[in-house]
Amino acid sequence: MRLYSASAQTARQPRLSATDWISAGLEALLERGIDAVQVTVLAQRLNVTRGSFYWHFDSREALLTAMIAEWRARNTGVMVEAVAETETLEDGILALFSVWVDHRRFDARLDQAIRDWARHDDSLRSQVKAEDNARVAVISEFFQRHGYEQPEAFIRARVIYFTQISYYALNIEADEAMADRLGYLEAYFRSFTGRDMAPAVARAYREANLGDRHDD
């Protein structure tokens, strides 16, 4: 004899949103890779039944699609915002630098986890390539707004972007203190732009970042 209806049992479940499931999926991806993103495993992690999942998603594939969309919104969106309508070349380059060193804004671990997943998924590999192209295009357009002709704007965009992605992939951050990175600020700027940074701008940026940040 059933004492509780299915609806009553569901009502006793924690009220999770689609965002909760996406967050759980991303956490599992970061911790153990894409094979760990399974409905049963996530339900156990969230302490709910599988039925709670199907209130929000038709299938595991739908969740994976939502996770990819979340990655795109976080990591490409913040990059677009960084260089949008910047008044000077220095403003835009320093805004990109700030985004890339602040993992609350640009999630470097998530970017690498998505790339690891894409090595075994042809469809995702194509999406990652498209996203890389979109990011480079945004930076290229920024360079063009500040006086660079094509193809120089595009090449400089590729150089600055793929340098940073390689920096994450090689995990150089683990061995390089923020003070050391800021010590290279003017040299990086000159390398990426072919121009010199105003000393006052470099000094203000260095002081602000050394004052506000602590290395993990």
Score class of each variant (00 low, 15 high):
F53K: 05
G92H: 14
W100K: 00
Q112H: 09
A95V: 02
A73H: 07
E87S: 03
L63Q: 06
A118S: 10
N133Q: 15
G92W: 15
G77M: 02
S98M: 01
V78T: 14
A134E: 15
G92S: 13
D122M: 06
F53G: 01
S59R: 13
R74I: 02
T86E: 15
A95R: 12
A84Y: 13
V78K: 08
V101R: 13
I114E: 03
H120I: 04
A62F: 00
D116I: 12
R60V: 09
S59K: 12
W71H: 09
F97S: 00
D111T: 02
R119F: 12
V101Q: 14
R74H: 03
A69M: 03
L110R: 06
M79Y: 01
R105S: 13
S123G: 09
R72K: 12
T76Y: 09
V83F: 05
D111E: 14
A82G: 08
K129Y: 13
A113W: 06
E131P: 00
D111M: 06
W117H: 13
R119P: 07
M67V: 01
A108M: 12
D132H: 12
L89H: 04
S59W: 05
N133S: 14
R119G: 09
H103E: 15
H103N: 14
Q127R: 14
A118G: 06
F53P: 03
D116Q: 15
D122G: 11
A113T: 04
S98F: 00
A95T: 02
F53A: 01
D111S: 04
S126L: 15
Y54I: 04
K129G: 10
M67W: 11
A113V: 05
A62N: 11
A113L: 08
V83E: 09
D91C: 05
R115H: 10
D116Y: 10
D132N: 14
L64Y: 01
L64D: 01
S98R: 02
K129P: 05
L96H: 07
F57L: 09
S52C: 06
H103G: 12
F53V: 00
M67P: 08
M79G: 01
A108V: 08
I114S: 02
V99T: 11
E90K: 00
D107K: 07
E70M: 11
A84R: 15
R105N: 10
E90A: 15
G92Q: 14
A69I: 00
F57R: 09
L63N: 04
L110T: 00
R72S: 11
F57D: 10
E87F: 00
T65E: 15
